[in-house]
Amino acid sequence: MKTKLKGVSYAKWGYIFSIPFIVTFLIFSLYPTFYTLLLGFTDCVGLNNTEWKFLENPFDNFKTIFENNSFKKSLKNTVLIWVLNFTPQITMALLLSAIFTSHRNEIKGKGFFKVVFYMPNIITAASVAVLFNALFSYPIGPVNDLLVSFGFRDEPYNFLVYKTPSQLIVAFIQFLTWYGNTMIVLISGILGISPDIYEAAEIDGSNGWQTFWKITVPNLKTVLLYTLITSLVGGLNMYDIPKLFNKGGPDGSTLTTSVFIANQAFSGRYLYNRAAAASMILFALISILSAILFWLMRDKDEARIEKEKRDARRAAKKQQKEAIKWQ
């Protein structure tokens, strides 16, 4: 056993490979982010205000925000719209990725469908939101024309002044623009699973359904976690679709927290301090929810790898020692 495992630790390479990220992060995002978050504890209101100071009672802005009805409403809307869009989105994406990666049932035109499903994500969300606003316009508009001419309704329906229809439409747009993206992520995750496992399953005679639940899903766990976390973060940060669909209306029913924050910070009275406090609360909410997800889907794999590595190191040391002894 003449393995020349050097006694040096590889740990420094971990630091070296993280340098580009850290440097870029320090230069371009840390200052802006931290600066804006800090404003949550100040009286900074108004454009280019350079004379702000920290509040005597640092949590005043948080108190104001918690008493803000629109903010509370926006949190509810955001979660509601996210659930309404994410449930069908992940179901559809899983289903499609199962169909497209099925070894036994090749679907013809797979490539075509895969491209087409991702296409709504290619156009800017803004254009799609504007398009849907036009689709549902009143009293003349494509959807209303169809409803009336097919006799579903006697009169056109003003979708855009009623709350629930507006929330459903926003959730649907969100679904339409992102399901293809989620599908691609899942497909690439499935393709990362070793085909050998599938072959073994096939030999064991498991059917497609079993294979999917027993092999694909468990092996997809890390990528699923990614999907859940990024959808959660993206969904709770949802901005352009509700903003451009109907400016957060009607009656604040599609006002998401991000739209609320942007409204506070970038227009009207430039309430930077409140906006910063609101984003910290949103940040906390996202972190808590993500932590729960992490915990629910905690990386048993990673824990296993950790353990293996530790064992390997121990073994290596042992070997080295033995090697020394031999010499």
Binding site: F25, F28, S29, Y31, P32, T33, Y35, T36, L37, I229, T230, V233, N237, Y239, T257, S258, I261, A262, A265, F266, Y272, A275, A276, S279, L282, F283, I286, S287, S290
Partner: peptide, 13 residues
């Protein structure tokens, strides 16, 4: 960093 709401840090950027 991933979870920071994007809307607010843009102005500082």
């Amino acid at each position: 960093v991933l979870m920071i709401p994007a809307q607010v840090s843009s102005i500082g950027f």
